[in-house]
Design a protein around this nucleic acid. Structure first.
Lengths: 310, 310
DNA sequence: GTGAAAGCGCTAACAA
DNA sequence: TTGTTAGCGCTTTCAC
């Protein structure tokens, strides 16, 4: 293994000089800099990560905690993870992958052993037991999603409220006359029966409904089935707009107009916030990413009438 | 931050004694051990990862290199990654996540800076430029998939040959009389047209075909469409067995009999091999995991006749 | 603009 | 069975 001392000797300078050339933390005559850089290349020198971390109190590693099982669409999650890694590399950081099943203790472990400098925690739930731990950790973190009490924490998510509004707008604009635009919200379990029941109930209560907003990815398939079975054609009798991953929207028949989950953007934003915090900068407690609607076949020619959000 | 010196002072012993209690690398009187363990808990001591890595020349971190875009089914890949992390934790290791776009240089970077002790590289291609790099790295690695020249490398994969054989057996057993069992192999592009063309050709050349083995996940959907369009009912006119992820097989109509991609098993095996190597043990150059066939609706009542692999 | 030297917190000889 | 000590390879004061 080539050490900094080897490089120093080879270049005829002190080890500290090599260090400073590499970090750029103090000015160096261009002559010495060149000599050192040549030696670095000649010897194939790579700074030892542990030694560097020990001396500088910085590992340059971020933790990424992914959910094990979740309602989340797996490809979206993967996209997110990839984006976190790619962005981290842009800032000269690496990413340690943790699974949620390590629980709060896992966060404590990697943080307090200084394995990582900061954490990105995905799929944070309303009453997540990791939240108090994160708050007390001696390093910055970013949560994806947000808990009931987000005090002193940095959270990032899609702006679901705006996304819903965006969907409703889209449907409303479609209903040319804009009369009778009425909102109804209905939660729904992920079984076919539950969807069938919910939709039947909805149609009974509001026979005039002509538009649906789905923010519940697992029920998208069943919902289309149910509508078909009930004889409601999409989009002729019923418009549909979903909040889901693009690939899911595109896989349906007809393809769904949708607000995308901006996984890549969220991952990038998460890392950028962390880096800012690591550098002592300030970031907002809550960052909500603006929705982006793509119109597809499920909402082209909707008639006028009521709207519903599921 | 609590250091080993703090613990030593608190317990009235030498720092090395604390170290030995924690590592179990030499025998300690139960009295001292108890005192030290109590102090560790009392002070909430966590060994500093960098200091430990620097002194012991072991980071206890494995690199996992995932493909960015691939023919691979994303949920399967995620399952694999999760399994790698979970298994690594069982052996007290963590996992650094790298993306394939860092290329060979990325492997060199994390290896030569001693950021990691060993590497798992997914989705290795026949002529992968990372292969020579891995061979020359001063640390063990495991490849998922295998390259043309696997000399001095450890590779793990599903035994596709056995998997294919298993599928053919399954179909052959179905064809009660076993007469006319004939094998034909046909590669196929991922477009609907290519599939249509391939199948038409196949049926023209071998009109008696009654069974198909698909080892080409992306064409599964198109293939079912094509068969439907050509008026071949599955499984009545044509049996089908796929080599693919369970969730893909289950999502089709009818559900496909299939040999699973044992992602979890592969991840586990990969890490176990690495740990063995790190401990100086020997592992086989090539580990092929045995196939496991699940019979589903696509092959229940196949008639007698020919078989084909696509 | 550069060098010398003191750690960072731990492990592992070596010594007792 | 335990303690003493010399590093591991780097960063960063402090001094010139």
């Amino acid at each position: 293994m080539v050490t900094i001392a080897d490089v120093a000797r080879h270049a005829g300078v002190a080890a500290s000089t090599v260090s400073y050339v590499l970090s750029g933390k103090r000015s160096i005559s261009s002559d010495t800099r060149d000599r050192v850089q040549r030696s670095v290349r000649a010897l194939g020198y790579r700074p030892n990560a542990s030694a560097r971390a020990l001396a500088s109190q910085r590992s340059n590693v971020l933790a990424l905690v992914i959910p094990l099982r979740t309602g989340m669409h797996v490809p979206v999650m993967m996209q997110f993870a990839t984006s976190v890694v790619t962005t981290a590399r842009r800032f000269d950081h690496d990413v340690l992958l943790l699974t949620a099943d390590e629980g709060p203790e896992g966060l404590e472990r990697v943080a307090q052993s200084s394995l990582v400098d900061a954490l990105v925690v995905m799929d944070v739930e309303l009453d997540d037991e990791r939240v108090p731990v994160l708050r007390d950790l001696p390093m910055p973190s970013v949560l994806i999603g947000y808990p009931a009490d987000a005090d002193r924490l940095t959270c990032i998510d899609l702006d679901f409220v705006a996304a819903g509004a965006r969907c409703v707008d889209h449907l409303a604009v479609e209903a040319a006359e804009r009369r009778g635009v009425l909102g109804v919200e209905t939660p729904c379990e992920h079984t076919f029966e539950a969807v069938l029941h919910t939709v039947e109930q909805l149609l009974r209560d509001h026979p005039g409904i002509t538009g649906l907003v789905v923010q519940n990815e697992p029920i998208i398939g069943p919902l289309l089935d149910v509508l078909r079975r009930l004889g409601r054609r999409v989009p002729e009798d019923m418009s549909l707009v979903a909040i889901c991953a693009d690939d899911v929207a595109e896989r349906q028949v007809p393809q769904l107009s949708s607000v995308t989950i901006p996984a890549e953007r969220i991952g990038q934003q998460a890392v950028e916030s962390l880096i800012t915090k690591l550098e002592g900068g300030d970031v907002p407690e809550l960052t909500l990413l603006p929705p982006n609607l793509t119109a597809r076949g499920s909402s082209c020619q909707a008639p006028q009438g009521d709207l519903t959000t599921a």
